[in-house]
Amino acid sequence: MVQAPMAREQLFALREEIARLEGKPVPAMAAARQEALAERGGRDREKPRLSLGISMLDEALEGGVPLDGLSEIRSSCLRDATASAGFALAISALMQRQAAADATPILWIADRVTAMEAGVPYALGLKDFGLDPQRFLHAAPRKLDEALWLAETAVESGAFAVTLLEVKGNPAHFGLTESRRLSLRARAAGRPLLLLRQSGEEEASSAALRFLVEPAPAAIRLLPDRSMLGGSIGNPVFRLTLEKSRNPAPLSLILEWNPHDRQFFPAREQARPPLKRTAHPGSRLSASLNRPDRPQEMGAVLAFDQAS
């Protein structure tokens, strides 16, 4: 009977430890301490977040993208890899601007397969996109283990305004444990880490947020006299879906990125793109009229998505 209170105390201590690691509000025991801190620190104790400048999105994100943790940006197929990379780089540009001294570089940890399929980041394109190519480091590890080590080391070193880790698909070696490890490292170092999952499925991960990015028709160029230049291709536009956040309702919106001002704007929905075409239409030949019907083929014909 003597041991029961001891064990309970131990249990509380462990719970507190876990809560502290996860950065969640500490239950019961530490509540008083938390209150005292809140009184003293006021709003400074709020976790640093990056506002995207869109009120609806910022509300859903509870203030913005966290500056001290892991966030995930996903594209559903490799064709959209550049759109998701563009959105991630736009956020990086904002983070870099917010970082002190404005001289901290960005680290891009590339994935070999994606680089072959969708191309490698191009310095002049980065410049056009609102980033400084001189403050951009590109890492090309050979294996996923190396990429994870790189991401961890980069976040720990604290030398980068933001670290982008590009991963193709849902590799088995990058599961919940690894993402949790990265997330804890990022939180401990107080640095943002963006996970760029190209052509990947939704997966349980330790990231606080997950966006699905799809390309959308670009904005139209504005002429100096505020008139539109018909048929022109202006600022890039992304179709965003907030798949995971504290906010339970899924949110979908369209954002335009202005590279010159380094700012997001809400974009108008232009003509809805047609539904995905399929490689096989799925329809079969019509039955013959004056002859017995040909024997049914085994199995069913499925309309697969066209290969990209």
């Binding site: 310095a123 480091l137 590109h138 890492a139 090309a140 590890p141 190396e146 080391t153």
Partner: peptide, 20 residues
């Protein structure tokens, strides 16, 4: 930053980490 670049270059080779 220099320490990070050194560590990565020592472990994964010089060509792994590049600047433009």
């Amino acid at each position: 930053l220099a320490g990070f670049v050194d560590r990565v270059s020592a472990r994964l080779g010089e060509d792994c980490l590049q600047s433009f």
